[in-house]
Each structure stands twice: as structure tokens, then as C-alpha cells.
Design a protein around this nucleic acid. Structure first.
Lengths: 330, 330
DNA sequence: TTAAGGTCCGCAATCGTTTGCGGAAACATT
DNA sequence: AATGTTTCCGCAAACGATTGCGGACCTTAA
């Protein structure tokens, strides 16, 4: 461990540690001459402050945590990339853990975050988190938590959300315009807040319009399930004219089924999805989708976090707007 | 900051800090009775050791670093997910930074890693890293670095690699078996070690076989470039019968071009790729590919890292084997 | 000449742990 | 009774930085 410390610099310069420390941060108490000397030596010796010592002393960590169910996922990935960009700009380190949707792992992770005294946490809770004591402990230690994607029901928590209702409504409007009546709608895990939000919004929209639309809802927790479900749906005699997918994962499954049955999009089956934007453009024609950008959400989450840390945030919830991106799949 | 410390526990129990510390780690010097008392109080008070203090004292950080050009990338993503799984199992925290392929950012990141005294670093260097001083400083501080994917030319560095030559050869063999002669091969950035490795291997294979194969090489640094390139290639009068893509990114671009020209795979154009496995299965028929699993590479990298940390590793390079996954695209 | 004020720097406590060492008390051995 | 062994625990020094406070020295003004 060939590390240069304040002590070493002080000794070779024949001055005190405090002088070195102050010189390095341009404290006015230090004369220009000594400051220059210190800075020069520090530079040639490649001095780098020991983050642990600093954090221990100053009680603030310059590390922020991020917890997602899975990293291997377009949406989370773009969220993470976005948050990382911002944290780097602010000189913060990012500590990332995944829960695998397991509440037990989730609470272990929270422990690790607490032990590492992260100065803030971005969290997407698992689909079946019931015990919030781990999160409460964070709050008790004044560690702000900004929830995203799947958030706790408690409205008194900081959060950034996609405009779920708006997104579903945008998709619904687009579907309504096609004039097609028979719609199959694929939703994800029932435990997720976004599932409920989107489903309710979609159903409400068509109920209020009463346009003779026949909407059938299905649930699938992953791509494979979605594929099987859609295959069954499309093989039935009374097959739908439109398929709505509430996420990229489901879209992938649906498209596999459609391709296997060699159905032409949009002639034989229309497709629309809520998506992060990457998957829809892989197909030809491009799938029409309502964008829910993890990247944008990440930026939003970060500004929210900064506001929370500085204690200036009265707002609890920030919403990332949705926008319809037209492809050729309707 | 409502944190319980050893001191607090010691005071309320009327014993010394050292006793509490030892009791908590089941030191034999401490009697069962006091140990129980300490453990109980620590539990009810939700004691959690201050990681900074521990690390400062013990000089070992329980944090490992990981640096990639981009997080938003199937391959890196799966690598990260894999490494995270392992680190969590070992109670380690993972600190992730991206370089955006910018050497300046890269060296800043290295600084952050050093300041945070990571106990090890997984690094994929940028396509144009020339100055390795930042990495050398890590070595001087005895921080092991395990390179992956794009690695420095210096053979005296720890690294895990995909079997690039083997992967290219496997793909070449599969192409040879089709009997098709005109092949267009798409490669990535010339600055990447994997580009060179794969290209050389592919060219050597066909040169040695001299099977009358007409191989043309193209370069594209991203999906859009690949798309344009392939469009031009396929519009030419003398269009190839097979397209080889050395990565998922290029495959995406190639497939977009193919779909736009409404060419049938594999009848009108054969496709094969080296891939992480996610993209090829999105199409129908599934694309035949040689698997280069980021997930497996991650596992391998982690075991290599553990060996390096314990100082037990004589081996410098570990190789992750390749395997051909047959789809219906040849 | 003396008091006031400014400039520049060092002392020492502190953050929360870990750990070598020494020592008191209890017990066992001749 | 004297000596040797355990058993159990506390003292205090680190780890590397930050920072309030005080003090030495010099300048300036009355």
C-alpha cells in the first residue's frame, strides 16, 4: 500500500498535518508560499485523499445507492446509465445492487447500503415487498430514498414515476383511431404498481368511450409466458385484431408468437406497446409505442434526489411525461 | 443521524468498547454471558458497523469497481449482472462507472476508484486508451485489475477473454458448411482487440481452406453504420449470400437493413453472428450465432479476481469457451 | 511605547473501529 | 502457601482526514 498521506507530506515538508490539509483546499489561513509548496509536493507524490477517512470524519459519503430487481433489462439499464452519468458529473460514486425480486435479498441489500452509509438511494421495490422496515431504517438515518418504477403504495414517499395513466391513455387513443374493436391487452405481474395503474387507465378509457370495443386482459410475468399466452390467443377462432403490451418484455414474447404464426403486422394483427424504445425499432415495420424512457426518468430521479438531499424538496412525486412514437404496426 | 455505535452500546452496558467489539465477532476472550448481553442489545438497537471506520482501520474496503464503456449494452449488462450476483454473495459492494469510450473520463474514473480504495477492479478499456498510467497506479497500490472484453495489448496483465479466434472459427465452419461462397463480414471498431482477433481468425480460416470463398470485410462502429453498410451491400448487383456480424450491435443494424429490403432469411440471405444470445432469438427464424456469454464471462472474471486478491493466481489469462447455437438463419 | 489587529500556523480532539498487550481475578498445581 | 494457568476484560494506539481554538509573530495606529 504505497499511499501518500497528509502525514507523509507534512513530514517531508516539515510542517503540520493541518497546514497541509488546509493548503490543499485553499484555506485563506495558509500563505501562498506554503500552499504552493504543498500543492507541488502533493502533485508529484500523487496524493489522493483517503475517501474512508474523509467520510468517517465528515459523516457524508459521496456514494449513492441504486437497487433494481434485475440489471439485465433494457429499462433499468437505461435508468442506471442515466443516473451514472449524472453522479459522475457530481463526483459521486454509484453502488448498484439487484434484488432478483426477492424481498429477503432486498433487505440484505438495504443493510449493505446502510453500512456503507450511502447518502441517498434509488430504489425499485420488488413485486412482493411487504415489510418496509428496512426502508424505514434508511429514513430514520436521514438517508433519502427516491423510488422509481415499482413504488410503495404509501403516498408519503419520494418518487419519480412514469405517467402510467397517461401512457395507457395515449395507447388507447391510438388503438381507438384504428377502428379495430377486438383488443387483447397484456399486462405484467399483478404485484407491480405500474401494472395496476396502466390496466385501470386502459379499462377506464374504453369504458368511458363505450365505443363497442371488446377488451380482454391477460397477465404474464415474463417474456416466455407472454409468448405462450399470445400464441393461444391468436390460435383461437375469435382472435383479436389488436394486441397491447404494457412493457418491452411482453412485447418480445408477443412478437415471437406473431412471427411463429407468420402473421403480418399490421394487416393481420396490430401491435402497440409501452416501451423504453429499443425493442420496437428492431422489427419491421417498427412497432408503434408509447415511450417510457428510463433514461429520462433517471435524469428526473437524480434531480429529485439532489433536491431531497439538500432538503429543499417539498414535492413528493415527480412525473415523467409520456409521448406516442408512431411506427407502422397499427 | 440516529446511529448506534460501539461506544453507545459499551456505555449503556457499562463495559469497554473493545469488549463490545470482540463480543460481536465471537472472540473467545469474551465470556458467554457478556457476549449474549452485547448481542442482544446490539440487536435491539439495530447496530450496524460503520463501514468507513472498519475500512479505514482494516485497510480493506469490501468494494470492488467495474468500468465499462457503456452500461446500455446487452453484453456489458449481462456481465455486470453476473458480477453483481457474485459480489453480493461475498458481501461485497459493487461500484460501477462508465467511460463513454473517452480516455479522459476513464482516467477520472480510475481516480475515483483509487480514492474509494476499491479492493479490485474489472475494466474494459476504451477503444483508444493509450495512456496506462492510471492503471499502473492501481497496480502500484496493489489493487488487482482484471481486464475483460477490450483488453490492453500488454500480455502481462490479468484478463478474462472470450475465445475470439475460436468463436470466429466456429462461425466460419458453419458458414463453410452451407456451401455458399460470397460472404460479407461486418466488424466493429478497429481499435478494439476483439475486432482484430476475430477478423484475423476469420480471414485465416478461409485462407487455409482455400475453398473458393469470397470474403469481404466491412467495418462499422455502431448499429446505424452497420445498417447503412448492409443496405448498400445488399443493393449491389453482386450481393453476398451470407452476412457475418461480429457483434449484437452490428447484427441489429444488419437485420434492419434486411427487413427493410424484405429479404427472406435464410433463402435470400444467410445470417450468422457472434452474440450474447439475446438479440438472435428475437427474430424468426432465430439467428444462428456463436455464443459469447457476458454472464459466463462475468462468473469467470469474478473467480479470477478472487484468485488475484488472494494472490494465488499464477495464471494471467482465463478464456471463456465459445459454442455454436444453431438457429435457422443459415 | 503600548495596545490592537492581522497573518499564518500547530495542537489536539474527533469520527467509529480493530487489536496487541497487560493485568486482575479465579482456579489449579505442587 | 507459593507458584503457574486460565479466563475475561480494559487501555490505548492506531487508521487518515477535518477543524475549532489558541498562540507566535509582525504590522499599524494612537
Amino acid at each position: 500500500m504505497n499511499n501518500t498521506t497528509l502525514k507523509k507530506i507534512a513530514e517531508t515538508l516539515g510542517c503540520s498535518i493541518s497546514t497541509v490539509s488546509r493548503a490543499l483546499k485553499h484555506h485563506p489561513d495558509i500563505s501562498v508560499k506554503t500552499r504552493e509548496k504543498v500543492l507541488e509536493l502533493a502533485n508529484t507524490l500523487d496524493y489522493e485523499p483517503n475517501a474512508f477517512a474523509v467520510h468517517l470524519r465528515t459523516q457524508n459519503s459521496k456514494v449513492i445507492g441504486l437497487m433494481v430487481p434485475f440489471i439485465f433489462n433494457q429499462f433499468y439499464e437505461s435508468f442506471i446509465a442515466s443516473v451514472e452519468e449524472e453522479s459522475r458529473k457530481h463526483g459521486l460514486a454509484l453502488m448498484i445492487l439487484q434484488t432478483a425480486n426477492d424481498p429477503a435479498i432486498e433487505s440484505e441489500n438495504l443493510k449493505l447500503f446502510r453500512q456503507n452509509r450511502v447518502m441517498g438511494l434509488f430504489a425499485c421495490i420488488t413485486a412482493n415487498t411487504n415489510d418496509f422496515s428496512g426502508f424505514r431504517k434508511m429514513s430514520e438515518q436521514n438517508i433519502p430514498v427516491v423510488y422509481f418504477d415499482n413504488v410503495p403504495k404509501d403516498p408519503d414517499t419520494c418518487r419519480v414515476c412514469l405517467a402510467d395513466e397517461r401512457a395507457a391513455t395515449l395507447a388507447a387513443e391510438a388503438m381507438l383511431q384504428t377502428g379495430k374493436k377486438k383488443i387483447a391487452a397484456l399486462f405484467g405481474d399483478r404485484g407491480l404498481s405500474i401494472t395496476t395503474n396502466r390496466k385501470v387507465a386502459l379499462e377506464n378509457f374504453f369504458r368511458s368511450k363505450s365505443a363497442g370495443v371488446q377488451l380482454t386482459a391477460y397477465h404474464a410475468t415474463n417474456s416466455e409466458e407472454a409468448e405462450k399466452t399470445v400464441q393461444q390467443i391468436l390460435k383461437a377462432t375469435d382472435k383479436p385484431e389488436l394486441i397491447f403490451c404494457m412493457s418491452d418484455e411482453l412485447l418480445i414474447g408477443a412478437m415471437k408468437a406473431i412471427q411463429q404464426l407468420e402473421l403480418k403486422v399490421p394487416e393481420q394483427i396490430g401491435v402497440i406497446s409501452i416501451s423504453n424504445g429499443f425493442i420496437p425499432q428492431l422489427y419491421s415495420p417498427r412497432i408503434t409505442y408509447v415511450e417510457t424512457s428510463g433514461y429520462k426518468l433517471g435524469k428526473l430521479a437524480f434531480t429529485h434526489m439532489m433536491a431531497c438531499i439538500s432538503g429543499a424538496s417539498a414535492v413528493k412525486e415527480l412525473v415523467q411525461e409520456s409521448v406516442l412514437i408512431k411506427g407502422g404496426s397499427l
